[in-house]
Simulated assay, not measured.
Amino acid sequence: MSKSFDMELFLSAVLTGSHATRQRHLRQAKLIQAEISERWQLETPWAWKKKHVAWFLGHRLASRCEATRYYYLLTVRLLARRLEKPWVFKC
Rank of each mutant, 00 (worst) to 15 (best):
S37E: 09
S2Q: 12
D6K: 02
A34P: 01
R60Q: 07
S2I: 12
G58K: 13
R60W: 06
T21C: 01
A67V: 15
K49R: 14
E43T: 15
K49S: 12
W87Q: 03
K85G: 02
I36F: 04
A80E: 05
L73Q: 07
W40G: 01
R24P: 01
F5W: 05
A13T: 10
H52L: 11
R60S: 08
L78H: 07
S37R: 07
L11C: 04
L83E: 08
R81H: 09
V76G: 00
D6M: 04
G17L: 06
K3C: 04
L74Q: 13
A20M: 07
A29P: 00
E8W: 05
H59Q: 09
V76N: 00
E38C: 04
L42F: 07
W48P: 00
M7R: 01
E35T: 07
H19D: 07
Q33V: 09
M1G: 10
W46D: 11
Q28K: 02
K30D: 04
A13S: 11
T44A: 11
H59V: 15
L42D: 02
A13P: 03
I36L: 14
L57K: 03
K50G: 03
E35A: 10
S12Q: 09
H19A: 12
F5I: 12
K51Q: 15
E35M: 15
T21M: 06
W87S: 02
S18H: 03
F56H: 05
L78A: 05
G17A: 05
A67N: 10
L26D: 02
S37G: 13
L31R: 03
Y71W: 13
Y72G: 02
L26K: 03
E66S: 06
M7H: 03
E66C: 04
A20C: 04
A20E: 12
W87N: 01
V53E: 05
L42C: 08
A13D: 14
L61S: 01
L79Q: 03
L61K: 01
Q23P: 00
T44P: 02
K30F: 03
W87E: 05
L9Y: 06
A67H: 11
F89P: 00
Q33I: 11
V76C: 12
V14G: 02
A62M: 07
H52V: 15
Y72H: 11
K50R: 15
E43W: 13
V53P: 01
Y72P: 01
V53D: 03
T21F: 04
E43Y: 07
C91W: 07
W46Q: 14
W55G: 04
L74W: 11
I32E: 02
Q28Y: 09
L83N: 04
